[in-house]
Amino acid sequence: MSRVVSIRPSRPDEGERAIEIWRRAVDATHDFLTSEDRAAIDEEVCAFLPHAPLLFAVDAEDRPLGFMLIESGNMEALFVHADYRGTGVGAALVRHGLALHPMMRTDVNEQNGQAMGFYARMGFHPTGRSPLDGQGRPYPLIHLIHRG
């Protein structure tokens, strides 16, 4: 059962919570990252995430459980706090994003089998593959689209 009560824009004072969600999510799902790359990505995320226009999925106490970032119909980020994985938080965020952008696109790390399965269940279809991630690291991306 989903714990999500609503989805709302992030507020300026919620940057630390966004980073906490990101770290817990990545630690639970991105075991393919080298420790050096994980540290470098963490530094990049800490500089960017607190200022990004995120959409938070929040519980009844308005506590953020997960977030997404959509730019021009492309889901740039979707992360759910590890404690709330499998409770419908990610699905609620994706459904919200699809209501705004029915043909939403996203990329997923090829090595993240759980995410690949999640996106397939949510109706996304592969459109291509890149051998490197967006920062040129050796983590192949699968490009996905939802066909509405």
Rank of each mutant, 00 (worst) to 15 (best):
10 S>L: 06
30 H>D: 03
113 G>Y: 12
39 A>D: 15
80 V>K: 06
138 P>C: 06
71 E>G: 02
8 R>P: 05
130 S>H: 15
46 C>M: 12
37 D>C: 01
78 L>K: 09
8 R>H: 10
43 E>M: 05
56 F>I: 02
137 R>K: 14
115 A>T: 00
60 A>K: 13
9 P>Y: 09
86 G>Y: 02
82 A>F: 02
79 F>N: 02
110 E>Q: 14
133 D>I: 00
88 G>K: 07
78 L>R: 09
140 P>V: 13
125 H>M: 14
18 A>W: 09
86 G>F: 02
76 E>G: 02
53 P>K: 12
116 M>D: 07
50 P>C: 03
19 I>G: 00
55 L>G: 05
96 H>N: 12
128 G>A: 09
53 P>F: 05
88 G>V: 01
80 V>Y: 12
67 F>R: 05
92 A>N: 10
117 G>Q: 13
8 R>M: 11
56 F>Y: 12
136 G>N: 11
100 L>N: 14
111 Q>I: 00
70 I>P: 11
7 I>E: 04
31 D>G: 15
118 F>H: 08
129 R>F: 06
92 A>V: 01
105 R>A: 09
88 G>Y: 00
116 M>T: 12
117 G>R: 13
1 M>I: 07
125 H>N: 13
86 G>T: 07
13 D>I: 00
60 A>P: 01
43 E>D: 08
97 G>C: 07
137 R>V: 04
2 S>W: 03
146 H>S: 09
13 D>C: 04
3 R>D: 06
106 T>A: 14
139 Y>L: 01
40 A>M: 10
60 A>C: 04
12 P>K: 11
23 R>G: 01
10 S>N: 13
6 S>W: 09
148 G>F: 12
51 H>P: 00
94 V>A: 02
2 S>Q: 11
29 T>H: 05
94 V>G: 03
127 T>I: 12
65 L>C: 08
3 R>I: 01
110 E>K: 10
73 G>V: 04
31 D>C: 03
109 N>F: 14
47 A>G: 07
66 G>F: 07
120 A>F: 10
48 F>I: 05
139 Y>M: 06
118 F>L: 08
